[in-house]
């Protein structure tokens, strides 16, 4: 029996390391869980990308749920995400709002002209200060915000069609069911 002790020790180590591998492949280890989940989205008032004199605030968007997608023309992963947004935007069931992050407006417009524009509204945060309130630390990031202005779901990194079907759409379905 005592001879088996090292063997059990070994099995325990293998189990621990196996768990570590499973844990890190199952989720993105660099994604920080947002403390803003299920809390009211921060107040914001940002100019529209195509009409900088007009602004969009949190209050303007209250009433209906929407998906706020943080993107930038300099962001490589946004290029990978973009076709997914193009394909999925019409079937999401909520408005897709583009949050142009720390980008030169001209670059953003050129980028959208080249890759297509899936967004119904586009707002620009050139200095990136409002993004800090959202806890944004890179692009792309996506926030699902309900009609009361509460953040209900957040995805860090590009939305893939897998994430859209397995996470985003179920989260949207919950929101749409809630609607009185």
């Amino acid at each position: 029996m005592s001879r088996l002790v090292p063997f059990f020790g070994f099995v325990l180590l293998v189990a621990l390391l196996g768990f570590g591998i499973w844990w890190n492949t199952g989720h993105d280890p660099s994604a920080i869980p947002s403390p803003l989940l299920d809390k009211p989205a921060p107040e914001f008032n940002l100019p529209k990308l195509y009409e900088p004199t007009a602004t969009v605030s949190k209050r303007d968007l209250l009433g209906k749920p929407y998906l706020l997608n943080v993107f930038a023309s300099w962001c490589v992963e946004c290029g990978a995400e973009h076709p997914v947004l193009q394909a999925e935007a019409p079937t999401l069931g909520v408005a897709l709002i583009g949050y142009n992050y720390k980008d030169a407006p001209d670059d953003a417009k050129a980028w959208l002209a080249e890759h297509g524009n899936p967004y119904s509204v586009l707002i620009a945060d050139v200095p990136g200060t409002t993004a800090i309130d959202f806890g944004v630390y890179g692009a792309p990031e996506s926030f699902l915000i309900d009609g009361k202005g509460v953040i209900r779901y957040k995805h860090i990194g590009p939305l893939t069609s897998d994430v859209v079907t397995s996470e985003l759409k179920p989260a949207i379905a919950v929101l749409l069911k809630e609607k009185p």
Partner: peptide, 8 residues
């Protein structure tokens, strides 16, 4: 910072 980016 913790309010926005968690205790991380």
């Amino acid at each position: 910072l913790v309010e926005r980016y968690s205790k991380f």
